[in-house]
């Protein structure tokens, strides 16, 4: 029974990682860059939702989409202002810029919302029968896992079936060839950031609902973990991000429960290193991860 409740908390945490990892992996797959500021977009999503709920007294059904819209715009603006001018530059320059954007967002958030943690009220709470809660199930866990599965299926369908999704796959393979098909590569990359950032907002809301403390650094650790998950599953691969996120969450929860809370992160990264030694492209990856 106790094991089961650890498993549930692992899957639920893993689902959040998976949603964030999907954003990382899409941007990496198409723009071939690691957007280290992705984690901080999650935090901004959390704050926007928090403000809409607490200051504007809007219902969750409005606040969450509002956070998604705000993050979509933020993602597109970041890409256009910070990354697009570096399209021809080396990957190191892009990486350093991404780290800069990450600090910019964290400090900007501190300026606007102060460093004092905010108490985020869960937006996905509903009462469960006690037979379920005694198993360790929570409404947050159910919604998070459900959202993750829906997002994963929707993204896979989008990338395989829609014209824009296929254009993204073309850009991922060969930007020059994509252009002569008539694909506007800049716009396609913009759309990728838009989708990734909207997902980051969802992840932010779910994360804060499960772990209610919201502060400017809220996104950074989950961001790094999700990046790890994306590499673990095979960066550039959508099912890989999903699998990597879930596994990482479960490994972390189990390590916390049965080994040591303090060592949990160390164990997570040790597993990553072992997987990459055995399979350098990650569990489901096609692309070799860029060395950074």
């Amino acid at each position: 029974m106790v094991f089961f409740s650890y498993l549930i908390s692992g899957i639920s945490l893993g689902s959040v990682y998976a949603i964030i990892a999907l954003g990382y992996t899409m941007v990496y797959g198409i723009a071939k860059m690691l957007n280290f500021a992705h984690g901080d977009v999650i935090m901004v999503g959390g704050y926007v939702c928090y403000c809409a709920l607490s200051y504007l007294h809007l219902p969750a059904i409005v606040s969450v989409p509002l956070a998604m819209i705000a993050c979509t715009v933020l993602g597109v603006v970041i890409e256009g202002l910070a990354y697009r001018p570096l399209r021809q530059a080396g990957s190191l320059a892009v990486l350093i810029t991404a780290i800069g954007v990450s600090y910019f967002l964290q400090n900007g958030a501190q300026l606007i919302w102060s460093a004092t943690p905010k108490n985020f009220a869960s937006v996905v709470h509903f009462d469960l029968p006690s037979s379920l809660t005694s198993l360790g199930l929570s409404s947050e866990a159910i919604v998070t896992v459900g959202a993750c599965i829906v997002i994963m299926i929707a993204l896979t369908t989008f990338v395989n079936k829609t014209k824009l999704g296929k254009a993204m796959r073309c850009c991922s393979e060969d930007k020059g060839a994509a252009q002569i098909m008539g694909i506007n590569v800049n716009r396609t990359i913009s759309m990728t950031f838009a989708i990734g950032s909207a997902l980051a907002a969802v992840a932010g809301v779910l994360l804060c609902s499960a772990y209610p403390t919201l502060q400017p650094t809220t996104g950074s650790m989950p961001g790094i973990k999700a990046f790890t998950a994306a590499v673990f599953g095979g960066i550039g691969s959508i099912p890989g991000a999903f699998l990597g996120g879930l596994l990482l969450g479960v490994i972390e929860a189990m390590a916390k429960a049965y080994i040591s809370t303090n060592l949990a992160n160390t164990i997570v990264f040790a597993v990553l290193i072992i997987v990459l030694l055995v399979r350098p492209t990650g569990l489901l990856g096609k692309y070799a991860p860029e060395k950074v």
């Binding site: 296929k166 073309c170 393979e173 020059g176 060839a177 994509a178 002569i180 098909m181 008539g182 694909i183």
Partner: peptide, 21 residues
């Protein structure tokens, strides 16, 4: 990405087809 809409198509050197599609 706009010239193709004018009615020209390039079959590039080395084919450059989308290998994973």
């Amino acid at each position: 990405y706009k010239t193709v809409f004018h009615g020209m198509a390039l079959c590039p050197e080395g084919r450059r087809i989308f290998l994973q599609m």
